[in-house]
Amino acid sequence: MSNARPRLDAMRPSQPGPTRTADPRPPDKFPGRGNYLGYVLFGSCGVFLLLSSILVLRIVWALAAGEAAWNDLMAQFQNPIYVAYHVLAFVGLVWFTLRFFSLFPKTQPAKIGPAPRPPDAFFAVALNGAFAVVTAALAAILWGAVL
């Protein structure tokens, strides 16, 4: 085998500078097929998190502004557009949360601090149980069934 260096380096860039890479492109069948649809819908539910947070801010502002502002906001919420958004947001948030909790165990390492990782069933019961209890309790309090 010769030790002579090649006279032409085929991998060498034609000009000095950062190596060019191809632009990223979506995988085949993205976003409508296979697991991509759920992935995209899950990410898109971020809009409900963002808008619903701003909605809670509006509620707090109305409460701070007094009874007239509160009654005005409640009257606005009777608009069919608001109601339709809230139905869509409720469905989206519930689906988002249940999917998040189903994905959560897959993100956990083998050891959590010094303790070994609990079994997947523990995460499922704890997270979905917390979702059911907190949602039911908060809804019951707001509804006036409790307190």
Binding site: A89, F90, F100, V134, A137, A139
Partner: peptide, 20 residues
């Protein structure tokens, strides 16, 4: 994600749907 998932559905359900 965690706090929003736990708190927002009930608030939206009662104040945004059931109330109106």
């Amino acid at each position: 994600m965690m706090v929003g998932g736990l708190l927002l559905p009930a608030i939206v359900l009662v104040l945004g749907i059931a109330g109106p």
